[in-house]
Write a protein that binds this DNA or RNA. Sequence first.
RNA 1: GGCAGGGUGGCUCAGUGGUACGGCGGAGGAUUGCAAAUCCUUUAUUCGCGAGUUCGAUUCUCGCCCCUGCCUCCA
Length: 471
Amino acid sequence: MSLHVYNSLHRTKELFEPLKPGKVGMYVCGVTVYDYCHVGHARVMVVFDIINRWLQQLGYDVNYVRNFTDVDDKIIQRAAERGIGIDVLTNEMIAAFDEDIDSLGCLHPNHEPRATAHMPEMIAMIEALVEQERAYVSDSGDVLYAVRTFDGYGQLSGKNIDDLESGSRVDVDDSKRDPLDFVLWKMAKPGEPAWDSPWGAGRPGWHIECSAMSCSHLGDTFDIHGGGMDLKFPHHENEIAQARAANGGGFARYWLHNGFVNINAEKMSKSLGNFFTIREVTEKYHPEVLRMFMLGTHYRSPLDFSDSALDAARAGLDRLYETARRLHCEMPDVRCLMDDSVTSHLTSHVSRLPPHFVAAMNVDFNTPEALACLFDLSRLLNKGLDAGEDVSALVDQFRAMTSVLGIVQHDVESWFKSGDVDAARIEALIAERSDAKKARDFARADAIRAELAAEGIILEDSPTGTSWKKT
RNA sequence: GGCAGGGUGGCUCAGUGGUACGGCGGAGGAUUGCAAAUCCUUUAUUCGCGAGUUCGAUUCUCGCCCCUGCCUCCA
């Protein structure tokens, strides 16, 4: 069974064949670190985390690179507003970013390069473009890329260069030879952070950062380049123009783009102001619920964000945890199987996964279908447990699936008992209620249950005793 | 205007040339002292509208309507 991926470059699903057998180089556009990440950013991280995990499951040695853009206009502006240096700001935001993606259960990429640490590579690439006369120094002193010198321009985004010009909403800048030309190197204004270059002190344009960092870590030609849909044009188009020209043809072979997170059918974005940061959401919902929510929709489709959608995701996840808890409590023999999750993403589970699940993931990472398999298995497990059958063979599958998807990765007991609760008191009340039940004093038993319910504590009686959970 | 991607049950989300996966929610039942959890059954004569191709289309083709995104920084 082989992996097929949707390649934005050709707008079709294609058989995935890496450049070097057994190895995959993947570059994903990260974030500009001037503020906290919102749910839209979270989606990119989760989507490519799943892709990374699945590639590893298939046995590939994945070199996953995701950058930080740690110098640009917004960063400079924000740092100035706060009266701090840009490095103070970016370090703070990178630390916050790490917390956020850790909470979402995303594995770290192999490399997380910062733009400011790759100036020589960027300058070298720009020099190559200048030498080829594809780049020029404008009247303002900025170095610009002459888009019309690159024949394939528009291939990725399906745009025609002349349509772009006629429909251009860009204000014509006199220093540009062509309105579509974009900045490779921007001259520093007084007081702005700057790096030396053959064209004077300044900073790189956004697009050259990614071209230079990806090639520097993965080579001129590599397998996968990913990012949000909105990056297709102009960012990825510009990256292609820069890198292919500078490298003499090669660059990313498969382009993967994830869909947006919408709110009320509108794209979540900073400019519209309709965004929620990851930390805002995870104050109210467990981060794994956010991950679950994202897994429920194919990565290329739009994803509508709402409280009711998160509630539904949580209810579904709770169901999965309920199964996990039953396995844990009712089958002490399998407890060890349930406890190996922390490192189990590192090993290949493909042989333990049902064919349906593997097939779903192999067709462009179809997580909704993979989740459907998981829910089917969950039901099977519950049924077996209800019937008192030995389900240990299925536990292995359950563990493998959840591990690949990165859900049900938390302690099953604490999942239902998070928050500030007095466990000892609850246990005492449960014991009292059990006595009352034995004495057939159901009025007292129900009163205790109602008292706890008022605090959000739900009791569940089972043949093996009473357990509780926090709603 | 150009380009890209969509419209599937109350909500959400997969999928397929032969009447549709899963989740959430609803209804009924089993279980329970009663609940909760779990299980079972049920909840789309139907996949935006019209036409065409076909033995047969939600799935292919064409037209139309509607939605979103990109075309400016944007994950």
